[in-house]
Amino acid sequence: MALNKLVADAKIALEGVQNDMTFMVGGFGLCGIPENSISEMVNRGITGLTCISNNAGVDDFGLGLLLQGKQIKKMISSYVGENDEFERQMLSGELEVDLIPQGSLAERCRAGGAGIPAFYTPAGYGTEVAEGKEVRVFDGKPHILEAALHADFAFVKAWKGDTAGNLIYKATAKNFNPLMAMAGKITVAEVEILVPAGELDPNQIHTPGVFVQRIFQGTDYQKRIERVTTRSKS
């Protein structure tokens, strides 16, 4: 019998979140972000948060909403352009920011979930990113030691999911979601389409339900696009 991870809504899914916790938040830009969980964090008014997320949303959406309310103390990200409030808080020193290379960020999340405490990577050698980190040469090339990342909660968004917590992502909305799902002490998944366990093809599942503690049916998805680029049919 598949274990049941289903909870009724975002409110119940976020039970136990507290001030000063560390959260992972999936998504790349506004693509594949857990919109319902972010709204619920805003509603709860929790503060002093450390957020691990590739980006910080835009001024009025995504993690930008938590920044507006000054709920975030520290961001761990790879790219934080497109957000004026973020830049203002960072340059004024209100917000602590740890910028790390995107591939290292992804692998640090994966490592956290996979029980690998640290790994060597060539990315960032000889730059500010390497400051204070152990350097070791492999095959004549210097690498830096990067530590795994962990989180009290990981919030992820998938396209489809079942009551056992199995997840399927759509297109490039996959991005950091499967990695962060692995690394949360409590992983909360929200999905566009929720089905009973047994309805998804086991061959097609991206995140096995073992990594997910709570799953709920998301609502009112905006799925905003940062840069609409098109070509004409003529």
Partner: peptide, 19 residues
Amino acid sequence: PFPFEGEEDADLINAGKQT
């Protein structure tokens, strides 16, 4: 290439966040 107008998919972007 970029999608035709009206066929943009919020779940399908590049690293520049373009559809």
